[in-house]
């Protein structure tokens, strides 16, 4: 092999290598640009997805809000006992007077029971109307509660023939809680009134035998009052 031949071969090889290198570079560049496009595309895709997701979330939120609103609306719907309450109030207004009660409402928490808050001086009259005109013949419950600002008597009445219930409440002065006894109307009020007298200190005027039924006559204080201090603390 002569020298010229060798240089030609070398040159050829170098050119080949150069071309291959260029080709490789070009290929690489192409790939790089493609992958860049891919990345961009993926980015775009991800952004779109995120957008969609956000939109969906927003939609869901809106939907939840609207159903919540709907639920709220439905809970504001008048109770099935509303007409009954209106009827009771009408009769009470006619019989006892338009200003005989402090307020009346449907107690949503207590199976929608119509609730009437009487004034102390009309409590007995309203009770009478409830029994005689509206046939609430069954006294299911009577008790008192110390609400610190006042004492409340809670009377739950039922009408066995009509299958209705009503709550009669009255707020009393905490220092001298005094109210007419319901025993003349419902004999079943006897012991519950004694219990309210015993534990809360409510005096029921006209009660045939008001006594400290559970604790005994020598007990000091009314235990269910919020400020009650046991007399015999050492025990």
């Amino acid at each position: 092999m002569d020298k010229n031949e060798l240089t030609r071969l070398k040159k050829e090889a170098a050119e080949k290598a150069k071309a291959a290198a260029i080709k490789r570079r070009q290929e690489k560049e192409r790939q790089a640009s493609e992958s860049g496009q891919d990345l961009e595309l993926a980015k775009k895709k991800a952004a779109a997805a995120a957008k969609a997701k956000a939109a969906a979330a927003a939609r869901a939120k809106a939907k939840a809000a609207s159903t919540e609103k709907k639920e709220e609306e439905s809970s504001v719907e008048p109770s099935p006992n509303e007409p009954l309450l209106q009827r009771y109030i009408q009769i009470i207004e006619r019989q006892v007077g338009t200003d005989s009660y402090e307020e009346y409402y449907i107690n949503r928490l207590s199976k929608d029971v119509p609730t009437i808050l009487a004034k102390p001086h009309t409590y007995m009259d309203i009770a009478q109307v409830l029994k005689q005109q509206l046939h609430f013949d069954f006294l299911a419950e009577l008790h008192g509660t110390d609400f610190e600002t006042h004492i409340e008597v809670y009377v739950y009445l039922c009408s066995l023939q009509n299958g209705q219930s009503v709550v009669l409440k009255v707020k009393l002065d905490r220092d001298n809680p005094m109210i007419p006894s319901l025993v003349p109307l419902w004999k079943g009020a006897d012991w519950p009134e004694c219990e309210a007298y015993d534990l809360i200190g409510i005096k029921f005027s006209g009660h045939p035998n008001l006594k400290r039924i559970l604790l005994g006559e020598d007990w000091i204080g009314y235990p269910l009052r919020k400020d009650y201090k046991p007399h015999d603390e050492g025990v």
Binding site: N107, L109, A140, Y154
Partner: peptide, 21 residues
Amino acid sequence: PKGEAFIRIESPRGEIGCYIA
């Protein structure tokens, strides 16, 4: 929630009720 309720059910001895304020 704030408020009161009086709930009655039938026990072997009669109507048992629970008042919660």
